[in-house]
Simulated scan of single mutants.
Amino acid sequence: MATYNLRRFAHADGLKAIARKHLLALLKPHKSYFDSRGLTLPPPSASDGLDYDQLVNVLMNPGADTPKSLLDALFFVHEMATPECMDTLLQEAETNGISLDGKPDPTAADVAVQVYLQDKDLLERKHAEQYLTRPRSFEYFQTEIRPIPKFKRPTSKTLAALEKSLDDWYEKKKRDRGSKVFVYPKKDSIWFLVRHGDPMRREGSLVSGQPSSVFYRPEKYDVLVYEPAIGEFRMNACNKGEKDTFRKEFGRHLFNDEDFFPGTGKYTLEPLRADGEASIVCTDIDGMEWVRLKEIQYFWGGAEKEIEIRKANDIFAAYSGSGRAMPKKARIIRASFQVKFTDSKTARTVTIRPSNIAQYTRDSDASVVENWLTRRGFIIADQEDESE
């Protein structure tokens, strides 16, 4: 429910930024509600008669009977009534054949209202798109299935089923229903934006100069990205329960397999970059004599889905000899090590691929290698569920 942002919208200045006829067109579908609250909406042809102060008072005191569609309309219009959003909406209106008021100087709010009245799904989608670039940290999950299935963009029916599954979880966690999944295909990845409610909040407020309180449900956006080239799913979400739900439900609805993206990542290859040669020391591991990094793969992405593969008898020695270092920005998606075990005359290969794949030449090597991986930080420590 959009009451969270309604408080920021319900000011006379904000309402007056909208041309009167557009504001009345936005409010008209809810005439019976305003009548019940003692506010009569004048006809668009009337020269005056709209009591802005009374309108603000009604909006600042929503009740159980306040139409959700009214709250959503006011929220989205307010959020998109900025100069930057206006430029975007003008372009979208032209692209989608939306006719806007012919006046030469509309306000950003005028444009937002007109687009909403003619195509509210478009306005809602452009609003959600603003959140795609905000997250700064992601957690990664990579499928173990080979070959990686071809990705098919989900249909509206699939998205509806996915949203219902997410709603079931959010409702259970006291976050209400009404989640929505937006899909944004890119050249090298598919971005998903999940809009949903957070736990209710109560804050003190002033209404007509008198102390009061506002009880509302904040709105939250989570970003998820799928990389078809490597079968990797990354997400920016709040807690472990939410991440597990995304992992399972997106796997189930997009790939018919809730385990398509394995659970919390077990392996990470970042120690190679952070610790350098110290990350492959094994003098404290029984059963191992030495380790060399012989192959590493970096995922650069981009329009061509670039993957860089570097091979050498000793990668660290090769970097040192040429005066170079590992790239800081590319994701390390695979590493192969040559390991000399004490029970063998020849070295054997161990391959690690985040987040849950480790390949050994012999199954008997597993316990020794896992001990080494744990001590060097390649195995992610178990994390308890975060507070909800």
Rank of each mutant, 00 (worst) to 15 (best):
A303N: 13
P228I: 00
D385K: 02
L24D: 12
K186S: 14
R202D: 15
P147V: 01
G14L: 07
S367Q: 15
S212A: 15
K152W: 12
A237L: 07
D48T: 09
D72T: 07
A112D: 01
K240T: 15
D176W: 10
R7Q: 14
Y267K: 01
K150W: 07
V77D: 02
E203V: 15
L90T: 00
P154E: 10
L70F: 09
A160Y: 14
L15E: 06
P228D: 06
P199Q: 08
D314C: 06
I98A: 07
S212E: 08
M235D: 06
D176H: 14
D167T: 09
A112R: 01
R362Q: 12
A12R: 13
E258D: 15
N313D: 07
D365C: 02
S344Q: 10
D244K: 04
D188S: 15
Y184P: 03
K186D: 15
E139Y: 15
L23D: 11
G263W: 14
R252F: 11
S322V: 10
R324S: 11
T374A: 11
P42Q: 01
K345S: 13
S99Y: 13
V181W: 09
A347D: 05
R217A: 05
L206V: 11
Q383Y: 00
Y52E: 00
C85P: 06
P42Y: 05
Y226C: 02
Q210M: 13
T88P: 04
N236E: 05
T283E: 13
V181M: 08
F76Q: 03
K243P: 12
P62R: 00
A347E: 06
E258H: 04
E84V: 10
I18L: 04
S212V: 04
L272R: 05
F182W: 14
K16T: 11
L159Q: 02
Q142H: 08
G321Q: 07
E232S: 03
S387V: 13
R175A: 04
T283Y: 06
R136G: 05
L90K: 11
T82M: 02
R217K: 03
R247F: 12
I379L: 11
A128Q: 02
P29V: 05
F9C: 07
L122Y: 07
K68T: 14
Y33I: 01
W372N: 09
E129V: 02
K329C: 05
V369I: 09
P106W: 04
T143C: 02
S45M: 13
A2D: 10
R37V: 03
F341K: 08
G231P: 11
P154F: 02
V77T: 03
V339W: 01
Y140S: 07
S99V: 10
F255C: 02
N236V: 01
R353T: 13
Y116R: 01
F316R: 00
T264D: 12
L373M: 10
W372S: 10
L132S: 10
M1Q: 09
M86C: 14
Y4D: 15
